[in-house]
Amino acid sequence: QIFVKTLTGKTITLEVEPSDTIENVKAKIQDKEGIPPDQQRLIFAGKQLEDGRTLSDYNIQKESTLHLVL
Results as ranks from 00 to 15, higher is better:
Q1S: 10
Q1C: 13
F3T: 07
F3E: 03
V4P: 00
K5A: 08
T6M: 14
T6F: 14
T6I: 12
L7C: 15
L7N: 15
T8P: 05
G9T: 03
K10I: 09
K10Q: 10
K10F: 08
T11H: 06
I12M: 06
I12Q: 02
T13E: 08
E15G: 06
E17S: 14
E17P: 03
P18R: 06
P18M: 14
D20W: 09
D20V: 04
T21Q: 04
T21H: 04
I22L: 05
I22C: 03
E23V: 07
E23R: 13
E23W: 13
V25E: 00
V25P: 00
V25N: 00
K26Y: 04
K26A: 02
K26C: 02
A27H: 13
A27L: 15
I29H: 00
Q30A: 13
Q30R: 15
D31G: 10
D31E: 15
K32W: 06
K32A: 11
K32L: 11
K32V: 13
E33L: 15
G34R: 05
G34N: 08
I35H: 08
I35C: 06
P36C: 09
P36W: 06
P37G: 08
D38K: 11
R41D: 08
F44M: 04
A45F: 10
A45H: 14
G46E: 05
G46M: 05
G46V: 02
K47F: 12
Q48P: 12
Q48E: 15
L49I: 04
L49H: 00
L49Q: 00
L49V: 04
G52I: 07
G52V: 07
R53Q: 09
R53K: 14
T54P: 05
L55R: 00
L55Y: 01
L55H: 00
S56C: 07
S56L: 13
S56F: 10
Y58C: 05
Y58G: 01
N59L: 07
N59A: 08
N59I: 03
Q61A: 10
Q61V: 14
Q61D: 09
E63C: 14
E63H: 15
E63I: 03
S64G: 06
S64V: 07
T65K: 05
T65D: 03
T65Q: 06
L66P: 02
L66C: 01
L66H: 02
L66G: 02
H67E: 13
H67N: 08
V69T: 08
V69D: 07
L70G: 11
L70I: 12
